[in-house]
Structure formats: structure tokens, C-alpha cells
Amino acid sequence: MKRRLLLQMTLNAPLLGMGLGLGSFGLASSLMPGTADAATREPPPRKPSRETSGPERRLVVIDPGHGGHDPGAIGVRGTLEKEITLDISREIARKLRGTRGVSVSLTRDDDIFLPLADRVAVAREAGADLFISIHADSAPNRDARGLSAYTLSDKASDDFSFALAKQENLADGAGGIDLRHTRPQVAAILSDLVARHTVSASLMAKSSLVEGAGRSLRLLDNPKRSANFAVLKAPDVPSVLIETGFLSNERDEELLRDRSQRRRIADVLSRELAGLLTSAPFA
């Protein structure tokens, strides 16, 4: 992957950073304040196995939101977000495994709790080309319903997205990426070079997924949004958070409780992900 090559080149050539100063940090520092480590992060407790069928395969890591002692949102009828996200994510993964040129892994495949930072680390450690976090949260407005997608931004695109991110980030208080142990010149170049690709690819993925899904599924008003979600803070993995609906809305909860409707959502998302990964310049 291009971003991996850039990262390796930067680590092997620290003198390139001389004279550039911390101004090179630019985009990365604004998007990932307190940013974290590309080179010194401890390995995550769980690492998904990547299917091996040649270097041309693109890996998507699907992240079922919440889990274990964190149920996520709870609907009026007692529906647990952690169960909805796991079921949809498993089905997406099952369908994508039949797609030529695509590999897929899950951050969790059962009812366990993973800190937000570990979810990010799983994708980075696996060398993912794309990270998709699946959710079905409570919305600030109970009338809000439909699918929407979010990318990382230091400043939220709107109050709705800000409230969602604030709620999600409370899951374990996870922060961003730590470059404290990387010499400043190297950290500056690494962050700037890699983040440029990551931001561009994340925005492209968000747009493609929403536009494709909108042909088959109901969308939230203004479905392409952004906010400072901790789970999207990998500096070298394009990342998108997808709200499949909102359990705070009775009609969305009814749909998400229906197994056939969850299969329909998974069908649409797997279709769009397959098209994206086999045609877009992620590698």
C-alpha cells in the first residue's frame, strides 16, 4: 500500500525531516490532536487473521460497535446495540469473503468488550486498507432515522454529529495516537504524508458507501457527516463509522430487530464495500 511505503521510507530516512520543522504536521495534527503512534504502539490483545491469497487482496476490517459490558444504545423495546452491530457485521464479513480480491476480518466475533484504542490498533496491526465501524446508536433527536456515515474531523460537521461522537467516545475514554517516542522531524513527515492519503480515502469511501446504499436503504437527512470519533483515529488506515439506523427511533428499532432487515442492510453494505475495494485506489 502506498501509505505503508511512505511510512517505511520516513522511518528509514530521518534526515529528510531536517529543516522542515513541525509545520509539516499540518493536517494530521489538526485531525488527530494528541496523536498517536505509528511506530511504537503495543500490539493489540487480539489480532485478526488476514486471508492470504496474494498481495493484491485488499483487507477491510469490520468493527461491530460496543460489546461485553458495554451494550451501546438500548432501544425502547430493549434492543441492545451490541447485538445488532455484531449480527450485521458478521453477515457483511460472510458475504465479503466470497468476493475476489477482498479479505475481511472482524475486530470482535463474539460478545466481548474491546477498548476503542484497541479496535484502532487491530486494524493498524493487520495492515488494513479500510476500517468500517458499525453502529446503531441513540440519536440526539428521536425523530432521526436512516443510515448515515461519518469520517474523522476535529470539528464536527453539525451538532448532531458532535453529540454522537461525544456519546461514542465515552465508551472507554480512549484518545488518539501517541507519537511521543518518535523524533519530532520523523513524526512530522510521517503524520503529514500518511494522513493525506488516509483523509482522502476516508472521504471517498464515505461518499461511495452512502451514495450506493441510498439506492436501496433509507438515509438520514444529510447522511454524510463528520466528527471527532476516537475509533476513527488511525492515521494510516482510511476509516468510516456507519450508523445503520437509530435505536432511539421506534421505526428504526423495529427494522433493526427484524433479522431479514438486518440481512438486507448487510447485503447492501457488503455490495458497496466489494465495489469500493475492487475499484478504488486503496492499495
Rank of each mutant, 00 (worst) to 15 (best):
L114N: 01
L273I: 08
D137N: 15
D154M: 01
G65I: 15
I62A: 04
D159G: 07
L255P: 01
S208M: 05
L241Y: 11
G54K: 05
E253G: 02
A171T: 15
D137H: 13
L86H: 01
L116M: 04
A165W: 03
H69K: 13
A205Q: 10
P43Y: 00
R183F: 01
I62C: 10
S226W: 09
I88Y: 08
A139H: 07
G173K: 04
G275F: 07
L241R: 08
E250K: 11
I189L: 15
T99E: 08
G68R: 03
A227P: 01
K95E: 11
S153M: 00
G175R: 13
L59W: 10
I177R: 08
P281Q: 08
N249R: 14
V122R: 06
Q185N: 13
G101E: 05
D111H: 09
E253D: 02
G54A: 11
P55F: 14
A117V: 14
V237L: 12
N249I: 04
R142A: 15
A123W: 04
V240W: 08
R259H: 11
S29I: 08
A174S: 15
G75E: 03
L256F: 07
E254H: 14
D159P: 03
R145G: 13
D252L: 05
R257G: 00
S191W: 01
L20S: 02
